[in-house]
Design a binder for these strands. Sequence first.
DNA 1: GACCGACTGTACAGACCGTTCTGGTAATGT
DNA 2: ACATTACCAGAACGGTCTGTACAGTCGGTC
Lengths: 200, 200
Amino acid sequence: MPTASATEQIPARERLLTAAGELFYAEGVHTVGVDRIVARANVAKATLYTLFGSKDGLVRAYLTARHERVRELMIRELAARYETARARLLGVFEVQGLLFDEPGFRGCAFVGANAEVADGSSVQELTETYRAWLRSLFHDLANEAGAADPEALAGQLVLVYDGAGISAWMDRNPGTATLATAIAGMLIDAAIPDGKEASR
Amino acid sequence: MPTASATEQIPARERLLTAAGELFYAEGVHTVGVDRIVARANVAKATLYTLFGSKDGLVRAYLTARHERVRELMIRELAARYETARARLLGVFEVQGLLFDEPGFRGCAFVGANAEVADGSSVQELTETYRAWLRSLFHDLANEAGAADPEALAGQLVLVYDGAGISAWMDRNPGTATLATAIAGMLIDAAIPDGKEASR
DNA sequence: GACCGACTGTACAGACCGTTCTGGTAATGT
DNA sequence: ACATTACCAGAACGGTCTGTACAGTCGGTC
């Protein structure tokens, strides 16, 4: 274990990952070259290649880190803010709104990355696991909330989630989150028996 | 005016535009180089530059052509298939589904292009006019259909339209169109007074 | 002191990029 | 007959890209 001294430094791997995250997300994985990343991270180019193997490896690590960050934020905030499964189902869209408010928000990182790669890229595999996670997040909550057809509701909410991200990005309007929450509320009410009744 | 002889050829501009459209859309504007485009179009490289000025000019022409194509398809199909403004409002999502069914569908071209450019690019201006057109399409139809708040309904439907495109693309599921149509139906019913009543 | 792993800095190869230039052909309008 | 226009094939240019090679630095460990 490295000792925590006053001259403690953030390790090169972490610096590379944050630099790559900022640049890739802001300008696209294809536009940003490795030279700019190593310059921003204050890391030698050789270090990048020993740690990640190739630029593609760094891109994969970047997307994996994004997924992990969104997942952590979602789970933490949902648990902290909402009581019932139904409220958490709606809360997903409020937490998504937190992302919209971040400075430099540029839409879903996976949408952006997929737009830049041809079919069969390694990026697509990571995208599939991300999409599967998002869908199962909605599916599990819909199940827990007592939806008549959790599968169907999950599909609807994924669509709204996607649309909210695109609209917020392309129209530069973070307020889209409340719009999405309202639509989601309608869909949830319609999908859960006695969804509109107050309580029991 | 060029005479229509037996050796009539499709002009170079058109060939370039279709070649660029296929390649840019399938692989991204940044991934595809001009060499591949001129090779596919059977055009000299100099011709590209006399006709479009630069690669960026070709990208702009590609996006403009995409916009025009979608607009024409939308207007033609909406007029041919549906009678009332309310049916046309819903029909937008069915026509969008026609795009999903096209072989090689890869989502909205403007979403893809925007993911590849940094802020301030000329692509963003074209995107704004495209987004404004889409929004006004919904807004005008919502008005015509007697929506209580056409602005609000248009915003909702733009979000659903965006979400449908992303979901259909990322999950490779053209059936998303019927899902989007169902959601749009709910929103339209809720936004138009007496929307659920049969007729008058 | 010898050793080691993590890291630096620079220089370079090879490919590919957008763009321009040269030089030529075929048809058109006057 | 001549200038113009529209186009073609390909070479050449300067720049940037990923990836590699190599010599060297630093903090700990035996």
